[in-house]
Design a protein around this nucleic acid. Sequence first.
DNA 1: CTGAAAGCGCTTACAG
DNA 2: CTGAAAGCGCTTACAG
Lengths: 320, 320
Amino acid sequence: MATIKDIAKLAGVSITTVSRVLNNHPYVNDEKRRRVEEIVRKLNYRQNLNAVHLVKGKTMTVGVLLPNIDYPYFQLMVGGVMEAAFRHQYSVICCPTAYNEEEELKYLFMLQRKQIDGLIVCSHANSWETILPFQEYGPIVACEYTNALPCVYTNHYAAFLDGMRYLRDRGHQNIGYCTARAGGASSGMRLSAYRRFSEETGMSANESWIFPECFTLEDGKRVIRHLMQMDHRPSAMLVNGDEVAAGMLVQARTDGLSVPGDLSIVGAGNQPFSEALELTTIDQNIKEIGRQSFALFLAGEPKQICVRHEIVERGTVRSV
Amino acid sequence: MATIKDIAKLAGVSITTVSRVLNNHPYVNDEKRRRVEEIVRKLNYRQNLNAVHLVKGKTMTVGVLLPNIDYPYFQLMVGGVMEAAFRHQYSVICCPTAYNEEEELKYLFMLQRKQIDGLIVCSHANSWETILPFQEYGPIVACEYTNALPCVYTNHYAAFLDGMRYLRDRGHQNIGYCTARAGGASSGMRLSAYRRFSEETGMSANESWIFPECFTLEDGKRVIRHLMQMDHRPSAMLVNGDEVAAGMLVQARTDGLSVPGDLSIVGAGNQPFSEALELTTIDQNIKEIGRQSFALFLAGEPKQICVRHEIVERGTVRSV
DNA sequence: CTGAAAGCGCTTACAG
DNA sequence: CTGAAAGCGCTTACAG
């Protein structure tokens, strides 16, 4: 493959001059510029980006750290990052970890090793403590709340409380919920919101109505199956993701449990398909979180941005 | 940041030796190896990948060319590519084109410029003619049928015919269909399959029942609205994507059109949410296409692999 | 087992 | 406006 040297030789100029015309620098004699451009075209020459990256010390690439691209939550988020990155001529490299700490570390090393200029953390397996030091090598922005890092987040606590209030305003006194990783940040917030709300309103909190480890449609089915075996069931569930809620809908149909007749459901995420399911859900503007987190990476500002949420009313909640 | 030189100096060896221990090459004196390893640890040193990539001429990264990550079809496909790439220590970089030819060319240039080792083409805006020459710079594999390139594909023609047969076996004589880009490869196949099937079976083909440019939920709604205004409607529709079918379901509900009572619908893609929708659909194993296309990239073999499809029966088709 | 040296393909002060 | 030269940080024959 042709290199800058070949071009220089053929055009009868120095490689410096070739580099100048390649990078649209000023101070190049028109005649020489034309000659270089012609050779470049004729040889169909293009710079080796690895050389450019090496000498410039950056790659115009960001990594997006996530457990898995199969979850709709992360699909929306990555979509937002990609949209924003694209607008700014950045490439995005997906970094699936399966929540494996070692795999995740490899991606942090990619930052240190200058394969990526920065990292957008949609979700993480390692503690912030082990992640933070890598900021030395490039901006890291989180897509969940933390005061240690620039972040764009949805307020899980407030959203959960809003959901509880929404259900209670419609007469529900027995409310359960689903959540994702038992140890995750959002699960903790949901639990404290749940307790606080119960205390304040005198609503009966029942921690056997809490279902952790909910990620997929299958998990939603499991929740319903479990619910069916209970003597005392909640009349409404706050669900951490629309895909989980979708699974609940499926199994409820199978088991003859009417939604919202016997059970009201509020999902989260407002996925595109949720409209078709007539699912009432809390829209957290996930894609916007992705967009703004890229903007934060680009700006390099140490901001914490809370993205608003809102309840989208459809057909899976009834007043009792 | 520490470089290999720093390590060499501190360890009192040559950079060659450092490189050897870094890359686990044999023939290094144990004592020196230990010394180097210790310095590396102490300085928290890690290689600059851009230098490694430059000298090795490869990056262990593949690009995935697609219009947009927001379409569930491509989400599944990318998920498959990522899963396979991950297993082989490859990174994947997403290349959204919005079907813009120039943007797409930029990604082809990325291959030429050695930022990626190969390219997996989920869908493309430029003609194969303009894409093919870039094979010179690295393997390109297509996720649709073409004899000019290694490819992993779903047989749209056969799948469409199967769908038609499925509907006809259930008594449908008036069948319409949705398709994506009017000029796209799959649209062409569907049209010829449609015509052939009509001829062979004597079924009344009606080309006003063909709806091109269907990509999203909204497009599905549009189709139903259009259908509602027709005097003579099809009794069944073959739809190119489950998200479009989902939109049809929504609008049908709004317009009081019963599915499958008044209209039978067969989707495509078997998206996770389709189960919740009770949508009958043609499962094309899209994720598997992604997986296998990465395998083909890796193997560098000029194969054409057809991935099988199957009809998943659920609740949106009735016999008439 | 080890190291000096060339080379990967660029960019960018610096001096003219 | 232009070019020789140093440098980015590695790997890898080659000679010992």
